[in-house]
Design a binder for these strands. Structure first.
Lengths: 195, 195, 195, 195
DNA sequence: GATGAATGAGCTTTCATTCAT
DNA sequence: AATGAATGAAAGCTCATTCAT
């Protein structure tokens, strides 16, 4: 399947995403990014007015990407239990194929709030993603499969848990591969949320 | 109870902990810390040889602090379900009384790995804390109250969940106070882990 | 004869050479050099990654410069005695027209070994110059005009002597100008080395 | 022979001499010296009012030490040629037994003129040593063994040569030990100076 | 759109020196 | 004489951003 040709803006975002996730926001310099792209620093600024703005556009980009993946699962006609497992699998798949996306979320977006303060208030920059998680819960409740609890409590469980596991994996603290834990985790989550 | 007089080293750690947690590691400068203490920049370096070393000593300090709190709970003669709830309450209490401790853990320690790379390999700088969580699980399993699952899967659930909630709270995304969620969360965790 | 237009790198080296020679390596700051050039500190680092590297490039630059001057003399079809005198004259000419070059050699390069440790091992950074001195000796020996003695003993005499005189001159200890001593010195050296 | 008990001032000078010679004036700190002596920095300042003053007292101390050694040779009833050789041997002996003395002379005193500017004008801080060299020449001339040339030309030869050789030796550039060169060097010097 | 030299504020760190004890 | 915590100026270096070309 032919890869859609990326615009220069997207190229920059992809490289910056990787570097920010790998080395951190403050330890990645604009020249670092420009070098990786074989582009001049000056020209980078034609596409993004500042380093902060670049960081904000990247988190939106990730939110849309993850939101779409979730949407595909949400639209399937399967039980909530099955959806739960599919989401865990999908999340871990991304953690494997594009680990920088999850890392960016955890280590750049969640950790450097001062960078995202203006422009990403609340969940403004991750709304696509959060919305799909919301839909997952609401439909589960409506179908009578999930307990009708506070959304954020459920959201914190789901995302905190998955994020924590990916973090432990990234730190090479986990003795097994992420796949190994899928069953346990999906069960734990479902048991916690089910009616 | 009289407050133990803090050594100058502890004073520095406390102030630095607060600033790092509030503004981030890279956006907090040594002069910032020195000013807060009405101390000269040079003298700071009589106590901590570098900014990185200061950061590492702080995470150890937090680990010991949290480890002690957990130990107190672990040593109580109560059911695992009750312990679970007490841990959630304790965690949220700290998130309220000393939010910088949790923030430091999430936003400084977990996020700026390059800073802690040398000297805090694996869980070397948070061992006191992790050890108590381990004891909590193992005793729960031995007493036949918890499922005998992989430690990290359970650890990720517990810590990811709590961390996620505190994060959402810190972002002022939660519509209610943390206390409001205690019951739900403790139930969710216990349901996920129970036999 | 039109002065070859100097590259910015050469401009920096020339100014730094002068300041290092005049004030010493440690007492000359990067801002000092930048100010002398009406250039920003930051930009200096676009040309030389560190103060040490700058110092090393300068000694190579001097070595090449002096090596070329020596080569011109070596290539002349004159007696070794005449060459000896020409070298003394050339050396003193430079000590007069560009005293910073000799001073740099004596007071920066020879004296701050820790700076040149990495990258200038042995005579790695002054090879062009040393090579020509070697040629001078070897040819003198081959022509039967000089005694066949250990190279370093002869080298130490030649360079130590000239360096010492330039030093005394720089300290304004000599009652006469350097030129005054040329005859004596050339004789002394030749007498010491001749067959 | 029992070592004369050193005063604290002398102890400091000896240690500082060693460190300055080994690591350079600017790269040796007062705490470095204090540590080596197991003495407090504050107390060091009871003996020497500043780092510069310490450096100046050290060079005087060395000058007296070397002057005495020269005097012993000068007072012997031997030919100037023999004295020349004895001086070379003495110089190299010191370079071997107390290399820091020669290094200090070459790399601290001669190279960091800004430090010695005030208080060591001309040869004010090395007069004892220079005086003995002067006596050596003058007596050689009076006895009709040496050419009556300008003192400084001869001085530069002698000291520049010896200094250069010790330097090459210190840099481990010389393929042989210093002793190996004694004969050559003494001959070279005598040939250069003799009538 | 594209280049990369240039800026300059600001960072971490060092260290001679002082001074209360 | 002795201590060592404290000071603060100044160093080397970095890097987001600008701008002439």
């Amino acid at each position: 399947m032919p890869q859609k040709r990326l615009t220069k803006k997207e190229q920059i975002m992809n490289v910056a995403l990787e570097l920010f996730a790998l080395k951190g926001f403050y330890t990645t310099t604009i020249p670092d990014i420009a070098n990786s792209l074989k582009m001049s620093v000056g020209n980078m600024y034609n596409y993004f007015k500042s380093k902060d703005i670049l960081a904000k556009e990247i988190i939106k980009y990730i939110s849309v990407y993850l939101g779409e993946k979730l949407k595909e699962i949400n639209e399937q006609d399967i039980s909530t239990k099955e959806k739960t497992k599919k989401i865990v699998i999908m999340y871990f798949d991304i953690a494997k194929s594009r680990p920088e996306m999850i890392d960016y979320f955890l280590r750049v977006y969640l950790s450097n709030r001062e960078v995202f303060k203006d422009g990403c208030e609340g969940m403004a920059c991750v709304s696509e993603f959060v919305t799909e998680i919301m839909i997952f819960f609401e439909e589960g409740v409506q179908k009578g499969e999930l307990k009708d609890q506070d959304f954020f409590s459920a959201f914190g469980l789901f995302m905190g848990y998955l994020g924590g596991m990916v973090f432990l994996n990234g730190e090479k603290i986990l003795p097994n591969k992420l796949n190994f834990y899928v069953e346990d985790i999906a069960d734990n989550i479902y048991n916690a949320l089910k009616k």
